[in-house]
Nucleic acid binder design. Structure first.
Length: 262
DNA sequence: AACATGGTCAACCGCTAGTTA
DNA sequence: ATAACTAGCGGTTGACCATGT
């Protein structure tokens, strides 16, 4: 089990990406996908290691990235999910379409953690980051959980549809999460067993899908520089949701179960 | 105006799990 | 069964920027 001999440091460029590099990466992925990150930079003519390319794509260049400030609803969701999942940023990111694990991690460390500590020190209710004195958030904007096809980046049947169940408020509270798990879990399992479980157990590689869906990438650089929020769709790791659902469901079952352990 | 300090966030590092030969 | 390899994850770093002194 050797360590990945990632970037052979020789000749590999590091540091911030230039617009030209971004464009090269976008062009390449648009044409050929990203089935092999390690080989990608070589074929694309980039002096970067595959890891760096992957990170750049996932955290910045991917077309479904939503830029801009986190809304109070999103922040609340992060806090709620963090209570359940801990530092599993990718799992949390899977519940916030358009947000990356890196971004969420940054927000947690720079904003939310401090705010929570503050609230706890003040004896306040840490469950509501908005608090009673912050109901008029200046950055308030309608949260977009997902606005386009839920399956845009997914060929999995394990989608947990947030928008359908949270009309009153787009924040995912504990109750919301539990309710969603209730409703969706058995459907998810049924769907998996009925349709695709035995044939395509869990599909992870959506690169071919992505290729088809990448549209308007020419404007990416401009978008990035202006930091437009990009209302697109769900992240494409819906598969993660299945295990999240199962996990949270098991926790609830555990909590109410009197079944002795063996 | 110049410097210090703190916040933010993109990028890197090191590790693990999963896959393949 | 095992070694070699890749993808992905979470922690950390450092450059850049805003604000304070």
């Amino acid at each position: 089990m050797g360590r990945a001999p990632c970037c052979e440091k020789m000749g590999m460029k590091r540091g911030p990406w230039t617009p030209e590099e971004d464009q090269t990466l976008i062009n390449y992925i648009h044409l050929y996908g990203h089935s092999n990150w390690r080989a990608l930079p070589k074929h694309a003519g980039l002096l970067r290691c595959g890891k760096s390319c992957r990170l750049r794509w996932i955290n910045y260049l991917r077309p479904d990235i939503k830029r801009g400030n986190f809304t109070p609803q999103e922040e609340q969701t992060i806090i709620n999910l963090h209570e359940v999942l801990g530092n599993r940023w990718s799992a949390i990111a899977a519940k916030l379409p358009g947000r990356t694990d890196n971004e969420i991690k940054n927000v947690w460390h720079t904003h939310l953690k401090k705010r929570l500590n503050k609230n706890q020190n003040n004896g306040g209710d840490a469950k509501d980051i908005n608090g009673s004195n912050d109901t008029t958030h200046e950055d308030k904007e309608p949260v977009v959980v997902h606005t386009t096809s839920p399956q845009q980046f997914s060929n999995s049947t394990t989608t947990l549809d947030i928008s359908d169940n949270n009309n009153k408020d787009d924040t995912m509270s504990h109750e919301d999460i539990s309710a969603l798990v209730d409703e969706s879990l058995h459907e998810d399992i049924s769907a998996l067993v009925d349709e695709s479980f035995w044939s395509e157990v869990v599909s992870v590689d959506n690169s071919s899908n992505n290729e088809k869906k990448i549209e308007g990438w020419e404007g990416l650089l401009e978008r990035n520089s202006k930091r437009h929020s990009y209302n697109n769709s769900k992240l494409y790791n819906d598969d993660m949701e299945f295990w999240f659902d199962l996990f949270t469901s098991c926790r609830r079952i555990e909590a109410f179960s009197d079944i002795p352990e063996f």
